[in-house]
Simulated scan of single mutants.
Amino acid sequence: MRVNPDPAGTAADSPTGRARVVDIARAAGVSTATVDRVLNKRPGVRDATVQRVLKAAGELDYLPEQALYAALAPQPLRLSVLLPAGTNRFIRMLGDMVGYSQEHWAPFNVRCRVEFIESFDPHELAAALRRHGKRSDGIAVMALEHPAVREAVTELAAQGVSVITLISDLSNSPRVAYIGLDNRAAGRTAGYLIGRFIGARSAQVALIAGSLSYRAHEEREAGFLHVID
């Protein structure tokens, strides 16, 4: 809906008796230009002023009830989830579950998108963080332990975009929280179980990790070797 301010007229002057922008401005104690910005959803108006203008518009029956509810509705919370691309079934399932959950988040006014990033390219991940930071209120990411990624997260934090690390954390970064396992404990558990299976005999053990660029894999290796050694 596009509204044009009409500062000269009032409801009494209107042939239909319908309230005009000047009536809303007078009732809300603001200028007609401010009313125009609010009704056309343009930025630059404080939240308290927006609510006052919309309240006046509703009381004067300027907006239909449905349009008033739509105008009063808060902007959706925009979230992005960045996961590594590849054939890892758990990661793919996690991304799919985020997509399938959209309808459950709708009543809470939350919108979420998922993007799969080249697994071991920190510069591509940093670029994706900055790209999503321009249109997201928060980002969850399986982080690579790399200065380029850390710098991107620091920039987003300075801009007020919250970043949460998933599965693999990012050291010395202003991320809000980490969601995942205690990876050193997971490595120690694996080492303990291998030791139980091998018993007292001498044996060679192969340790396979996706990439030590992920702090999670590095911590699991450290925990494993701590027990085996």
Rank of each mutant, 00 (worst) to 15 (best):
Y100H: 12
A203E: 12
A67W: 02
E218W: 10
G58N: 03
T189A: 13
A200I: 00
A216L: 03
G58F: 06
G180I: 04
L54M: 07
A158I: 00
R78W: 00
I228L: 14
Y69T: 13
V21E: 01
P107K: 10
P43Q: 06
S211L: 09
E145Y: 07
G95P: 03
T34L: 06
P64C: 05
G187F: 03
A148P: 09
G195P: 03
L166F: 15
K41V: 13
H104A: 15
R184Q: 11
A140M: 14
P84T: 01
G210A: 10
L129A: 11
N109T: 09
R188W: 01
Q102W: 08
A73L: 14
V98I: 15
E151K: 12
E151M: 07
D121H: 11
A19E: 01
E218S: 13
P7T: 06
Y178H: 15
E118I: 06
R78I: 04
V110L: 14
V163Q: 04
D47K: 12
F120E: 14
P107S: 09
P74Y: 09
L60Y: 05
L170P: 05
R18I: 00
T154H: 12
S80Q: 07
L54D: 03
L82A: 01
R220C: 01
D137N: 15
A128R: 14
Y69L: 14
D169F: 02
A12V: 11
D47A: 15
L144H: 09
R215A: 13
E219I: 00
G44R: 10
S162T: 13
R131D: 14
G195L: 04
D169N: 12
Y178T: 04
R46T: 02
V30G: 04
T10E: 03
R18N: 11
D96A: 15
D13R: 10
Q159K: 15
Y62N: 05
F197Y: 11
R201N: 05
A57E: 03
R113L: 13
S162C: 09
N172I: 00
L225N: 07
V176H: 10
A209P: 00
M97W: 11
G9F: 01
R135G: 09
R130E: 15
G138N: 02
T154K: 12
A12Y: 01
I228A: 12
S171N: 06
Q204T: 15
A158M: 03
G95D: 03
R175L: 06
P43E: 11
A126L: 04
D61G: 07
G223K: 07
L144A: 10
L144Q: 10
V149R: 04
S31N: 08
V22P: 00
V176C: 06
V153F: 11
N40Q: 05
Q102K: 14
E219S: 09
P15A: 07
S119R: 13
L181Q: 14
R111F: 08
L72V: 00
R111N: 13
R131W: 10
E115F: 05
T189R: 09
A143M: 06
S101F: 13
R20I: 02
S101Q: 11
S173N: 03
A177T: 13
A157V: 02
R150A: 13
G133S: 09
E65F: 07
K134C: 10
A190C: 10
V81I: 14
L60G: 10
